[in-house]
């Protein structure tokens, strides 16, 4: 099977798995992308909830909780991005799955970028007890775009059956 020149077909693990197989989670009998996606999907919007709490009840605890939620969400999002790209890149161009995958990819990239911007803006007033509105705006936009991206990801799995198989 040829999946493009960017993927080595050399078996590197136990003489059975390629590097791509390992990143996709095949040796573990489970797709590797899903365990990572839930963390940013939960942590990033949760930051927004802490932001709202800080506006209602100014407290450093809320702003710090929001800050570290975004940090952790972005860190895990990197692993989600790597495992997702390994599934996405070999898809056949023009196929329905790749079209939906591209929408999912673009939306999640935008969402992560918006939250990264929000994080950057928070660092200018690290000891604020209320999240600045300027930092909340990209977070709100990021949460909306993230939800749209999650919708496309869900479509890939639950409707298109991506990585839903007895042979992972």
């Amino acid at each position: 099977m040829t999946t493009g020149s960017i993927w080595s077909q050399r078996r590197v693990v136990a003489g059975r798995w390629t590097l791509k197989d390992v990143v996709q989670g095949k040796p573990f009998g489970h797709p590797s992308h899903p365990p990572f996606v839930h963390f940013p999907s939960a942590l990033l919007p949760s930051a927004l909830i802490f932001d709202l709490a800080s506006r209602l009840d100014p407290d450093l605890t809320f702003t710090r909780a929001a800050f570290y939620n975004i940090v952790l969400g972005l860190v895990v999002a990197m692993f989600a991005a790597i495992t997702g790209l390994v599934d996405y890149l070999p898809m056949v161009g023009g196929s329905r799955k790749k079209i939906i995958g591209t929408r999912h990819l673009i939306a999640q990239l935008c969402a992560v970028s918006l939250f990264a911007l929000s994080l950057l803006l928070r660092t200018f007033d690290f000891y604020a007890t209320q999240t600045p509105l300027g930092a909340m705006i990209p977070a709100v936009a990021g949460a909306v775009v993230l939800t749209i991206g999650n919708y496309f990801g869900g479509t890939l799995v639950y409707r298109q059956g991506m990585r839903v198989s007895t042979d992972l």
Binding site: M1, T3, D87, P90, M91, V92, G93, G94, S95, R96, K97, K98, Q160, G161, M162, R163, V164, S165, D167
Partner: peptide
């Protein structure tokens, strides 16, 4: 790849036997 959908999963039928696999 799964011959019909372009997913790069040659033996996956995505839980639906209507998909045609390499095997």
């Amino acid at each position: 790849m799964c011959i019909t959908c372009g997913c790069d999963e040659p033996e996956a039928n995505h839980g639906n036997p209507k998909h045609i696999t390499l095997q």
